[in-house]
Design a protein around this nucleic acid. Structure first.
Lengths: 217, 217
DNA sequence: TAGATTGTTAATCGATTAACAATC
DNA sequence: TAGATTGTTAATCGATTAACAATC
Protein backbone atom coordinates (compact mmCIF):
# COMPACT_ATOMS: atom_id res chain seq x y z
CA UNK A 1 0.00 0.00 0.00
CA UNK A 2 1.68 3.15 -1.25
CA UNK A 3 1.68 6.28 0.83
CA UNK A 4 -0.44 8.57 -1.29
CA UNK A 5 1.34 11.73 -2.37
CA UNK A 6 -0.78 14.84 -2.09
CA UNK A 7 -1.29 16.30 -5.56
CA UNK A 8 1.83 18.02 -6.75
CA UNK A 9 1.20 21.36 -8.38
CA UNK A 10 2.03 22.01 -12.02
CA UNK A 11 4.24 24.89 -10.87
CA UNK A 12 6.54 22.34 -9.21
CA UNK A 13 6.41 19.90 -12.12
CA UNK A 14 7.32 22.55 -14.67
CA UNK A 15 10.45 23.36 -12.68
CA UNK A 16 11.70 19.76 -12.67
CA UNK A 17 13.08 19.77 -16.25
CA UNK A 18 15.08 22.87 -15.41
CA UNK A 19 16.54 21.18 -12.35
CA UNK A 20 17.37 18.20 -14.51
CA UNK A 21 19.06 20.30 -17.17
CA UNK A 22 21.23 22.18 -14.70
CA UNK A 23 22.18 19.00 -12.84
CA UNK A 24 23.41 17.57 -16.13
CA UNK A 25 25.47 20.69 -16.67
CA UNK A 26 26.96 20.39 -13.20
CA UNK A 27 27.87 16.78 -13.93
CA UNK A 28 29.56 17.79 -17.17
CA UNK A 29 31.62 20.25 -15.16
CA UNK A 30 32.62 17.44 -12.81
CA UNK A 31 30.77 18.87 -9.81
CA UNK A 32 29.59 16.05 -7.58
CA UNK A 33 27.75 17.83 -4.76
CA UNK A 34 25.63 20.93 -4.48
CA UNK A 35 23.77 22.72 -1.72
CA UNK A 36 20.28 24.12 -2.22
CA UNK A 37 21.78 27.55 -1.58
CA UNK A 38 24.35 27.29 -4.39
CA UNK A 39 21.91 25.53 -6.72
CA UNK A 40 19.41 28.30 -6.10
CA UNK A 41 22.00 30.91 -6.94
CA UNK A 42 22.69 29.22 -10.28
CA UNK A 43 19.02 28.74 -11.17
CA UNK A 44 17.79 32.06 -9.87
CA UNK A 45 15.48 30.38 -7.35
CA UNK A 46 15.48 30.54 -3.56
CA UNK A 47 17.12 27.68 -1.69
CA UNK A 48 13.84 27.25 0.14
CA UNK A 49 11.91 26.67 -3.04
CA UNK A 50 14.34 24.03 -4.24
CA UNK A 51 14.13 22.13 -0.96
CA UNK A 52 10.34 22.39 -0.92
CA UNK A 53 10.09 21.17 -4.50
CA UNK A 54 12.41 18.20 -4.00
CA UNK A 55 10.70 17.20 -0.79
CA UNK A 56 7.45 16.72 -2.70
CA UNK A 57 9.08 13.53 -3.97
CA UNK A 58 11.37 12.49 -1.14
CA UNK A 59 14.36 13.48 0.92
CA UNK A 60 17.20 13.32 -1.55
CA UNK A 61 19.70 15.41 0.41
CA UNK A 62 21.85 14.96 3.45
CA UNK A 63 22.12 17.45 6.30
CA UNK A 64 25.41 19.26 6.41
CA UNK A 65 26.36 17.99 2.96
CA UNK A 66 23.77 18.99 0.38
CA UNK A 67 22.75 16.91 -2.61
CA UNK A 68 24.77 14.44 -4.61
CA UNK A 69 24.53 15.75 -8.16
CA UNK A 70 24.40 12.39 -9.93
CA UNK A 71 21.94 10.86 -7.48
CA UNK A 72 19.62 13.84 -7.63
CA UNK A 73 19.83 13.91 -11.42
CA UNK A 74 18.89 10.24 -11.57
CA UNK A 75 16.04 10.69 -9.09
CA UNK A 76 14.56 13.51 -11.16
CA UNK A 77 14.98 11.52 -14.37
CA UNK A 78 13.04 8.79 -12.66
CA UNK A 79 10.30 11.12 -11.43
CA UNK A 80 9.94 12.55 -14.94
CA UNK A 81 9.87 9.05 -16.42
CA UNK A 82 12.58 10.03 -18.88
CA UNK A 83 14.14 6.57 -18.79
CA UNK A 84 10.96 4.83 -19.90
CA UNK A 85 10.65 4.43 -23.65
CA UNK A 86 7.53 5.94 -25.17
CA UNK A 87 6.62 5.49 -28.83
CA UNK A 88 5.35 8.56 -30.62
CA UNK A 89 3.92 9.42 -34.02
CA UNK A 90 3.67 12.78 -35.74
CA UNK A 91 0.46 13.73 -37.50
CA UNK A 92 0.92 16.51 -40.01
CA UNK A 93 4.15 16.25 -42.00
CA UNK A 94 4.43 19.82 -43.27
CA UNK A 95 7.22 22.19 -42.31
CA UNK A 96 6.65 22.04 -38.60
CA UNK A 97 6.06 18.28 -38.55
CA UNK A 98 9.28 17.71 -40.46
CA UNK A 99 11.21 20.02 -38.16
CA UNK A 100 9.87 18.16 -35.13
CA UNK A 101 10.80 14.86 -36.80
CA UNK A 102 14.35 16.19 -37.04
CA UNK A 103 14.23 17.35 -33.44
CA UNK A 104 17.07 15.75 -31.54
CA UNK A 105 15.51 16.15 -28.10
CA UNK A 106 13.23 13.11 -28.31
CA UNK A 107 15.57 10.51 -26.92
CA UNK A 108 16.58 12.82 -24.08
CA UNK A 109 12.99 12.59 -22.83
CA UNK A 110 12.50 8.88 -23.57
CA UNK A 111 10.43 9.38 -26.70
CA UNK A 112 11.08 7.43 -29.91
CA UNK A 113 9.53 8.61 -33.15
CA UNK A 114 7.92 5.68 -34.98
CA UNK A 115 6.06 7.16 -37.92
CA UNK A 116 4.60 10.27 -39.52
CA UNK A 117 1.21 10.70 -41.13
CA UNK A 118 -0.30 13.21 -43.52
CA UNK A 119 -3.28 13.58 -45.82
CA UNK A 120 -1.23 15.16 -48.60
CA UNK A 121 -0.40 12.48 -51.23
CA UNK A 122 2.70 14.42 -52.27
CA UNK A 123 4.21 13.88 -48.83
CA UNK A 124 3.15 10.26 -48.38
CA UNK A 125 6.10 7.98 -49.11
CA UNK A 126 8.84 10.51 -48.37
CA UNK A 127 11.18 9.69 -45.50
CA UNK A 128 12.54 12.11 -42.90
CA UNK A 129 15.48 10.66 -40.98
CA UNK A 130 14.42 7.08 -41.77
CA UNK A 131 10.86 7.85 -40.68
CA UNK A 132 8.38 7.20 -43.47
CA UNK A 133 5.47 9.53 -44.00
CA UNK A 134 2.34 7.38 -44.29
CA UNK A 135 -1.22 8.06 -45.32
CA UNK A 136 -3.34 9.12 -42.38
CA UNK A 137 -5.89 6.43 -43.26
CA UNK A 138 -3.28 3.82 -42.30
CA UNK A 139 -2.81 5.40 -38.90
CA UNK A 140 -5.35 3.28 -37.01
CA UNK A 141 -3.76 0.04 -38.08
CA UNK A 142 -0.26 1.30 -37.35
CA UNK A 143 -1.25 2.33 -33.83
CA UNK A 144 -2.80 -1.08 -33.19
CA UNK A 145 0.30 -2.94 -34.35
CA UNK A 146 3.11 -0.77 -33.07
CA UNK A 147 2.39 0.10 -29.46
CA UNK A 148 2.15 3.86 -29.92
CA UNK A 149 1.90 5.83 -26.67
CA UNK A 150 1.74 9.43 -27.81
CA UNK A 151 0.59 11.53 -30.77
CA UNK A 152 2.19 14.77 -31.87
CA UNK A 153 -0.20 17.07 -33.70
CA UNK A 154 1.49 19.35 -36.25
CA UNK A 155 -1.50 20.07 -38.47
CA UNK A 156 -3.11 23.45 -39.08
CA UNK A 157 -5.74 24.32 -36.51
CA UNK A 158 -8.59 23.30 -38.80
CA UNK A 159 -7.59 19.63 -38.80
CA UNK A 160 -6.34 19.37 -35.24
CA UNK A 161 -9.54 18.42 -33.43
CA UNK A 162 -10.41 15.67 -35.88
CA UNK A 163 -6.86 14.29 -35.61
CA UNK A 164 -7.19 14.35 -31.82
CA UNK A 165 -10.48 12.47 -32.13
CA UNK A 166 -8.88 9.82 -34.33
CA UNK A 167 -5.89 9.46 -32.01
CA UNK A 168 -7.98 9.12 -28.87
CA UNK A 169 -10.37 6.85 -30.75
CA UNK A 170 -7.44 4.50 -31.36
CA UNK A 171 -6.59 4.53 -27.67
CA UNK A 172 -3.81 7.15 -27.60
CA UNK A 173 -3.82 8.83 -24.20
CA UNK A 174 -1.16 11.51 -24.60
CA UNK A 175 -0.92 14.35 -27.11
CA UNK A 176 1.78 16.93 -27.75
CA UNK A 177 -0.15 19.64 -29.54
CA UNK A 178 1.42 22.29 -31.77
CA UNK A 179 -1.82 23.36 -33.42
CA UNK A 180 -3.06 26.76 -32.22
CA UNK A 181 -6.26 25.48 -30.70
CA UNK A 182 -7.47 23.91 -27.46
CA UNK A 183 -8.30 20.28 -28.04
CA UNK A 184 -11.31 18.61 -26.50
CA UNK A 185 -10.36 15.14 -25.34
CA UNK A 186 -11.68 12.52 -22.90
CA UNK A 187 -10.62 13.30 -19.34
CA UNK A 188 -8.06 10.50 -19.13
CA UNK A 189 -6.13 11.91 -22.10
CA UNK A 190 -3.18 14.21 -21.40
CA UNK A 191 -2.58 17.19 -23.67
CA UNK A 192 0.58 19.27 -23.51
CA UNK A 193 0.30 22.37 -25.67
CA UNK A 194 3.04 24.31 -27.44
CA UNK A 195 1.23 27.43 -28.54
CA UNK A 196 3.83 29.34 -30.53
CA UNK A 197 1.54 32.22 -31.38
CA UNK A 198 0.77 32.80 -27.70
CA UNK A 199 4.46 32.84 -26.89
CA UNK A 200 5.06 35.34 -29.69
CA UNK A 201 2.23 37.57 -28.50
CA UNK A 202 3.66 37.64 -25.01
CA UNK A 203 6.98 38.74 -26.52
CA UNK A 204 5.11 41.43 -28.46
CA UNK A 205 3.42 42.58 -25.25
CA UNK A 206 6.68 42.85 -23.39
CA UNK A 207 8.35 44.78 -26.22
CA UNK A 208 5.36 47.08 -26.39
CA UNK A 209 5.25 47.53 -22.63
CA UNK A 210 8.92 48.48 -22.48
CA UNK A 211 8.37 51.08 -25.20
CA UNK A 212 5.41 52.50 -23.27
CA UNK A 213 7.52 52.75 -20.11
CA UNK A 214 10.30 54.56 -21.94
CA UNK A 215 7.91 57.03 -23.54
CA UNK A 216 6.15 57.77 -20.24
CA UNK A 217 9.21 58.55 -18.18
CA UNK B 1 1.01 62.45 -16.84
CA UNK B 2 -0.14 58.85 -17.18
CA UNK B 3 -1.81 57.11 -14.28
CA UNK B 4 0.77 54.44 -13.50
CA UNK B 5 -0.54 50.92 -13.80
CA UNK B 6 0.53 48.65 -10.98
CA UNK B 7 2.70 45.88 -12.41
CA UNK B 8 0.57 43.34 -14.16
CA UNK B 9 1.47 39.76 -13.37
CA UNK B 10 2.73 37.36 -16.04
CA UNK B 11 -0.16 35.07 -15.15
CA UNK B 12 -2.56 37.70 -16.49
CA UNK B 13 -0.44 38.51 -19.54
CA UNK B 14 -0.17 34.87 -20.58
CA UNK B 15 -3.95 34.60 -20.61
CA UNK B 16 -4.41 37.56 -22.96
CA UNK B 17 -3.50 35.68 -26.18
CA UNK B 18 -6.07 33.05 -25.30
CA UNK B 19 -8.73 35.72 -24.81
CA UNK B 20 -7.72 37.18 -28.14
CA UNK B 21 -7.92 33.85 -29.94
CA UNK B 22 -11.36 33.03 -28.58
CA UNK B 23 -12.68 36.51 -29.32
CA UNK B 24 -11.62 36.05 -32.93
CA UNK B 25 -13.47 32.75 -33.02
CA UNK B 26 -16.58 34.39 -31.62
CA UNK B 27 -16.36 37.06 -34.32
CA UNK B 28 -16.06 34.40 -37.01
CA UNK B 29 -19.25 32.88 -35.65
CA UNK B 30 -20.94 36.25 -35.90
CA UNK B 31 -21.36 36.69 -32.15
CA UNK B 32 -21.24 40.38 -31.29
CA UNK B 33 -21.60 40.43 -27.49
CA UNK B 34 -20.51 38.17 -24.66
CA UNK B 35 -20.83 38.18 -20.87
CA UNK B 36 -17.94 37.26 -18.63
CA UNK B 37 -20.03 34.31 -17.44
CA UNK B 38 -20.49 32.85 -20.93
CA UNK B 39 -16.93 33.69 -21.97
CA UNK B 40 -15.67 31.94 -18.86
CA UNK B 41 -17.72 28.88 -19.67
CA UNK B 42 -16.13 28.69 -23.13
CA UNK B 43 -12.58 29.27 -21.89
CA UNK B 44 -12.81 27.16 -18.76
CA UNK B 45 -12.11 30.16 -16.51
CA UNK B 46 -14.27 31.79 -13.85
CA UNK B 47 -16.21 34.89 -14.82
CA UNK B 48 -14.52 36.62 -11.93
CA UNK B 49 -11.06 35.96 -13.30
CA UNK B 50 -11.95 37.32 -16.69
CA UNK B 51 -13.35 40.53 -15.22
CA UNK B 52 -10.32 40.93 -12.94
CA UNK B 53 -7.92 40.37 -15.83
CA UNK B 54 -9.62 42.82 -18.15
CA UNK B 55 -9.89 45.46 -15.45
CA UNK B 56 -6.10 45.48 -15.17
CA UNK B 57 -6.21 47.41 -18.43
CA UNK B 58 -9.50 49.27 -18.27
CA UNK B 59 -13.24 48.92 -18.08
CA UNK B 60 -14.15 47.46 -21.44
CA UNK B 61 -17.58 46.19 -20.54
CA UNK B 62 -20.97 47.62 -19.87
CA UNK B 63 -23.20 46.73 -16.94
CA UNK B 64 -26.24 44.70 -17.87
CA UNK B 65 -24.83 44.04 -21.35
CA UNK B 66 -21.45 42.42 -21.18
CA UNK B 67 -18.60 42.99 -23.63
CA UNK B 68 -18.73 43.91 -27.28
CA UNK B 69 -16.74 41.17 -28.97
CA UNK B 70 -15.11 43.26 -31.65
CA UNK B 71 -14.26 46.13 -29.32
CA UNK B 72 -12.75 43.83 -26.73
CA UNK B 73 -10.79 41.97 -29.39
CA UNK B 74 -9.38 45.26 -30.68
CA UNK B 75 -8.53 46.45 -27.16
CA UNK B 76 -6.60 43.26 -26.44
CA UNK B 77 -4.83 43.44 -29.80
CA UNK B 78 -3.78 46.93 -28.81
CA UNK B 79 -2.61 45.88 -25.34
CA UNK B 80 -0.56 43.08 -26.87
CA UNK B 81 0.87 45.43 -29.48
CA UNK B 82 -0.11 43.03 -32.24
CA UNK B 83 -0.89 45.83 -34.64
CA UNK B 84 2.60 47.33 -34.43
CA UNK B 85 5.01 45.97 -37.01
CA UNK B 86 8.18 44.45 -35.60
CA UNK B 87 11.05 43.26 -37.80
CA UNK B 88 12.61 39.94 -36.88
CA UNK B 89 15.55 37.84 -38.00
CA UNK B 90 16.20 34.15 -37.47
CA UNK B 91 19.64 33.01 -36.43
CA UNK B 92 20.26 29.32 -37.10
CA UNK B 93 18.78 28.13 -40.39
CA UNK B 94 18.72 24.39 -39.75
CA UNK B 95 15.55 22.32 -39.55
CA UNK B 96 13.95 24.28 -36.77
CA UNK B 97 15.00 27.66 -38.16
CA UNK B 98 13.53 26.77 -41.54
CA UNK B 99 10.32 25.53 -39.96
CA UNK B 100 9.99 28.78 -38.02
CA UNK B 101 10.69 30.72 -41.23
CA UNK B 102 7.74 28.91 -42.76
CA UNK B 103 5.62 29.61 -39.71
CA UNK B 104 2.51 31.44 -40.75
CA UNK B 105 1.77 32.94 -37.35
CA UNK B 106 4.21 35.85 -37.61
CA UNK B 107 1.93 38.38 -39.19
CA UNK B 108 -0.84 37.54 -36.74
CA UNK B 109 1.40 38.90 -33.97
CA UNK B 110 2.78 41.83 -35.92
CA UNK B 111 6.16 40.29 -36.68
CA UNK B 112 7.72 40.37 -40.13
CA UNK B 113 10.63 38.09 -40.94
CA UNK B 114 13.42 40.04 -42.66
CA UNK B 115 16.35 37.65 -42.93
CA UNK B 116 17.95 34.44 -41.74
CA UNK B 117 21.57 33.83 -40.74
CA UNK B 118 23.73 30.76 -40.37
CA UNK B 119 27.39 29.83 -40.09
CA UNK B 120 27.03 26.83 -42.42
CA UNK B 121 28.25 27.83 -45.94
CA UNK B 122 26.01 25.16 -47.45
CA UNK B 123 22.95 26.99 -46.21
CA UNK B 124 24.10 30.53 -46.99
CA UNK B 125 22.49 31.70 -50.25
CA UNK B 126 19.46 29.44 -50.08
CA UNK B 127 16.05 31.10 -49.82
CA UNK B 128 13.13 30.02 -47.66
CA UNK B 129 9.87 31.71 -48.66
CA UNK B 130 11.73 34.62 -50.28
CA UNK B 131 13.90 35.02 -47.19
CA UNK B 132 17.57 34.69 -48.01
CA UNK B 133 19.89 32.85 -45.64
CA UNK B 134 22.92 35.06 -45.09
CA UNK B 135 26.30 34.56 -43.46
CA UNK B 136 26.20 35.35 -39.78
CA UNK B 137 29.18 37.67 -40.20
CA UNK B 138 26.93 39.97 -42.23
CA UNK B 139 24.39 40.13 -39.42
CA UNK B 140 25.72 43.22 -37.69
CA UNK B 141 25.53 45.33 -40.81
CA UNK B 142 22.10 44.00 -41.70
CA UNK B 143 20.75 44.90 -38.28
CA UNK B 144 22.16 48.42 -38.53
CA UNK B 145 20.60 49.01 -41.95
CA UNK B 146 17.25 47.27 -41.65
CA UNK B 147 15.69 48.31 -38.35
CA UNK B 148 15.55 44.87 -36.79
CA UNK B 149 13.61 44.70 -33.51
CA UNK B 150 13.83 41.06 -32.52
CA UNK B 151 16.10 38.03 -32.93
CA UNK B 152 14.92 34.44 -33.07
CA UNK B 153 17.53 31.96 -31.90
CA UNK B 154 17.23 28.52 -33.53
CA UNK B 155 20.80 27.33 -33.03
CA UNK B 156 21.92 24.34 -30.98
CA UNK B 157 22.46 25.19 -27.32
CA UNK B 158 26.24 25.47 -27.77
CA UNK B 159 26.00 28.50 -30.03
CA UNK B 160 23.03 30.19 -28.41
CA UNK B 161 24.75 32.36 -25.83
CA UNK B 162 27.27 33.76 -28.30
CA UNK B 163 24.46 34.53 -30.74
CA UNK B 164 22.58 36.29 -27.95
CA UNK B 165 25.71 38.30 -27.19
CA UNK B 166 26.06 39.34 -30.81
CA UNK B 167 22.38 40.27 -31.07
CA UNK B 168 22.36 42.35 -27.91
CA UNK B 169 25.72 43.82 -28.92
CA UNK B 170 24.05 45.13 -32.06
CA UNK B 171 21.28 46.70 -30.02
CA UNK B 172 18.59 44.01 -30.32
CA UNK B 173 16.41 44.14 -27.21
CA UNK B 174 14.05 41.20 -27.73
CA UNK B 175 14.82 37.52 -28.25
CA UNK B 176 12.58 34.56 -29.01
CA UNK B 177 14.74 31.66 -27.89
CA UNK B 178 14.31 28.06 -29.06
CA UNK B 179 17.71 26.85 -27.86
CA UNK B 180 17.49 24.65 -24.77
CA UNK B 181 19.44 26.98 -22.51
CA UNK B 182 18.85 30.04 -20.36
CA UNK B 183 20.42 33.07 -21.98
CA UNK B 184 22.25 35.71 -20.01
CA UNK B 185 21.38 39.13 -21.36
CA UNK B 186 21.47 42.75 -20.16
CA UNK B 187 18.49 43.54 -17.98
CA UNK B 188 16.74 45.70 -20.56
CA UNK B 189 16.61 42.78 -23.03
CA UNK B 190 13.48 40.66 -23.15
CA UNK B 191 13.79 36.91 -23.66
CA UNK B 192 10.81 34.67 -24.35
CA UNK B 193 11.77 31.00 -24.22
CA UNK B 194 10.24 28.08 -26.06
CA UNK B 195 11.84 25.12 -24.35
CA UNK B 196 10.55 22.12 -26.29
CA UNK B 197 12.44 19.57 -24.24
CA UNK B 198 10.92 20.90 -21.03
CA UNK B 199 7.46 20.66 -22.53
CA UNK B 200 8.16 17.10 -23.61
CA UNK B 201 9.44 16.14 -20.17
CA UNK B 202 6.30 17.50 -18.57
CA UNK B 203 4.30 15.31 -20.95
CA UNK B 204 6.48 12.35 -19.97
CA UNK B 205 5.87 13.10 -16.29
CA UNK B 206 2.13 13.23 -16.71
CA UNK B 207 2.06 9.97 -18.69
CA UNK B 208 4.23 8.36 -16.06
CA UNK B 209 2.13 9.73 -13.24
CA UNK B 210 -1.07 8.39 -14.74
CA UNK B 211 0.48 4.96 -15.11
CA UNK B 212 1.58 5.07 -11.47
CA UNK B 213 -1.95 5.98 -10.39
CA UNK B 214 -3.45 3.13 -12.37
CA UNK B 215 -1.02 0.59 -10.98
CA UNK B 216 -1.57 1.73 -7.40
CA UNK B 217 -5.34 1.56 -7.35
C1' DT C 1 -38.78 49.84 -14.40
C1' DA C 2 -36.73 45.11 -13.66
C1' DG C 3 -33.15 42.10 -14.97
C1' DA C 4 -28.60 41.48 -16.14
C1' DT C 5 -23.95 42.12 -15.66
C1' DT C 6 -20.19 44.90 -14.82
C1' DG C 7 -16.24 46.94 -11.84
C1' DT C 8 -14.30 46.49 -7.54
C1' DT C 9 -13.67 45.24 -2.77
C1' DA C 10 -13.27 41.46 0.46
C1' DA C 11 -12.41 36.54 1.42
C1' DT C 12 -10.16 32.48 0.25
C1' DC C 13 -6.89 29.66 -1.50
C1' DG C 14 -2.38 28.20 -2.93
C1' DA C 15 2.41 29.03 -3.67
C1' DT C 16 6.65 31.02 -2.08
C1' DT C 17 9.76 32.38 1.45
C1' DA C 18 11.56 32.40 6.13
C1' DA C 19 12.81 30.16 10.21
C1' DC C 20 14.70 26.60 12.85
C1' DA C 21 15.16 22.05 15.05
C1' DA C 22 17.24 17.81 13.49
C1' DT C 23 21.31 15.69 12.08
C1' DC C 24 25.10 14.54 9.08
C1' DT D 1 32.79 18.30 18.25
C1' DA D 2 31.46 22.45 15.40
C1' DG D 3 29.79 23.91 11.09
C1' DA D 4 26.87 23.21 7.45
C1' DT D 5 22.75 22.17 5.45
C1' DT D 6 18.77 19.56 5.20
C1' DG D 7 13.57 18.56 5.94
C1' DT D 8 9.65 20.65 7.61
C1' DT D 9 6.62 23.86 9.91
C1' DA D 10 5.07 28.58 10.15
C1' DA D 11 4.62 33.17 8.05
C1' DT D 12 4.07 35.83 4.11
C1' DC D 13 2.85 36.96 -0.24
C1' DG D 14 0.24 36.87 -4.46
C1' DA D 15 -3.37 35.08 -7.29
C1' DT D 16 -7.99 33.43 -7.66
C1' DT D 17 -12.71 33.40 -6.37
C1' DA D 18 -16.80 35.27 -4.16
C1' DA D 19 -19.80 38.92 -3.14
C1' DC D 20 -22.31 42.94 -4.05
C1' DA D 21 -23.21 47.86 -4.91
C1' DA D 22 -23.36 50.52 -9.11
C1' DT D 23 -25.58 51.10 -13.35
C1' DC D 24 -26.78 50.07 -18.07
Amino acid sequence: MDRMKPNISMAVIRRLPKYYRYLNELMEKGITRISSKEFGRILGFTASQIRQDLNCFGGFGQQGYGYNVRELRDEIANILGINKTKNAIIVGAGNLGQAIANYSGFRGSGFVLKAMFDINPRLVGISIRDIKIMDIDDMGEFIKNSGVNAGIICTPKEGAQSVADRLTGEGIKAIWNFAPTDLEVPEDVIVENVHLSESLMVLAYMMNERDRMENTQ
